[in-house]
Design a protein around this nucleic acid. Structure first.
Lengths: 212, 212
DNA sequence: TATATTATGAGAGTAGCTCTCATTTAGATG
DNA sequence: CATCTAAATGAGAGCTACTCTCATAATATA
């Protein structure tokens, strides 16, 4: 009670927990890759990570959650808040994306890579990913509203942020990614797509026919 | 084999199936409303609809699917294809949405109403709804590409459709809808948000100018 | 009426997920 | 160092969504 709170980072307990969590995730992703998501049971994952099934659920509430990148959104939002006010919102978001990605360690990048593949492939995970995305939109709406001095429930703000994420998602849609290679190229295309949004989504119609 | 195919609509079998399907859905929605989604079991639904649990799964692959409006997307896409080429893509989408909604019978509307509530309230259903939406957008990308003479994998097309998707999605987020009347209001806000997108996503509307 | 088709029900089995309780392990205290 | 406390784990029981198989009943066709 009177003791110093060691539990934050350096303590043995915390380090062990982190290692266990990482182990579960790594083995899970490996098994998913090797035998598919549906054909991999929690029991197998637990066995591979040398924990009990009970422990699996203590670290991840559902099987899907093993795949979901938890902290990526936070990093983007932080980076977004750091951008100078002189940038347009979309420019700030593009910069934030770049910065957030730059903080990835190779291991994290690999994880992200695999996760993105599953987010496109496995229906349940895709659905969850979208749901998470919706939460991120919510937070980004807050950040944007703060930035430009409107309220977060303003429809214009919501629509704006929604469009940004929709554009980002459009690059990730299943048809766009035939090969499993969700990597740098995807991010580049994401950036391009955001540039298009900033330019007002020109559709470049066939010559002569200008829609509207 | 040589006989006329009666199985389409008028046959006794088909009528019975339609009635059973409707009964299951109605009782399910009622029970969800009365005791909540999670606290309602398939067994209860089956019992209420006077079928066996096996039969439930023959009509609906998962519990979530009872809530999902299945044919709504098709109606939207059909309506979209019917729109005159003179309309801008977003205008066409908005018109298609309106037309599709207009084809609702009162019973369907009531169903949609309840479903919309659950789509916002229950996480699993919300996730599935977004996933369905994403599928719709994929098909919309095809339709749009056809409409303006580009290919569906064109980045501009994808970004455009993605923005539409994101904007619609932003309206569906839980925080945006505290109140009860999810049905009409949601659609109205969705339409407003699309109008904003069409106007280039103005973030600070000129004073006095309330967008639509 | 006889026969082929299709819908249904019963029941067994799998796996995700929750909860409880006993056991172990790390950290704090004397 | 011994002890006490609190947290982490494991074991196991239980619920429910979902799948599969097979027998039976209902409907269509001849």
């Amino acid at each position: 009670m009177t003791s110093v709170d060691l539990s934050q980072h350096g303590s043995l307990r915390e380090r062990k927990k982190a290692r266990t969590r990482a182990a579960i995730r790594e083995h899970a992703l490996r098994l998913f890759r090797e035998q598919g998501y549906a054909d991999t049971t929690i029991e197998q994952i637990a066995a591979a990570a040398e924990v009990s099934p009970s422990t699996f659920f203590r670290y991840f509430p559902t099987k899907e959650d093993v795949v979901l990148r938890d902290d990526f959104d936070d990093r983007i939002l932080e980076a977004f808040d750091r951008q100078p006010a002189s940038l347009s919102p979309i420019a700030a978001i593009r910069a934030a994306l770049r910065e957030a990605v730059a903080t990835f360690t190779p291991a994290e990048w690999e994880e992200f890579h695999q996760g993105a593949g599953l987010s496109v492939t496995v229906p349940e995970i895709r659905a969850r990913t979208l749901d998470e995305l919706s939460r991120t939109i919510e937070m980004m709406a807050d950040a944007l509203a703060r930035r430009i001095g409107l309220t977060a429930d303003d429809l214009a703000v919501r629509a704006y942020v929604g469009a940004v994420f929709g554009v980002m998602m459009s690059v990730l849609s299943p048809d766009a990614l035939a090969g499993a290679d969700v990597g740098e190229q995807t991010l580049r295309r994401m950036d391009e797509a955001l540039a298009l949004l900033e330019a007002g989504l020109p559709l470049a119609p066939p010559r002569g026919t200008t829609p509207r």
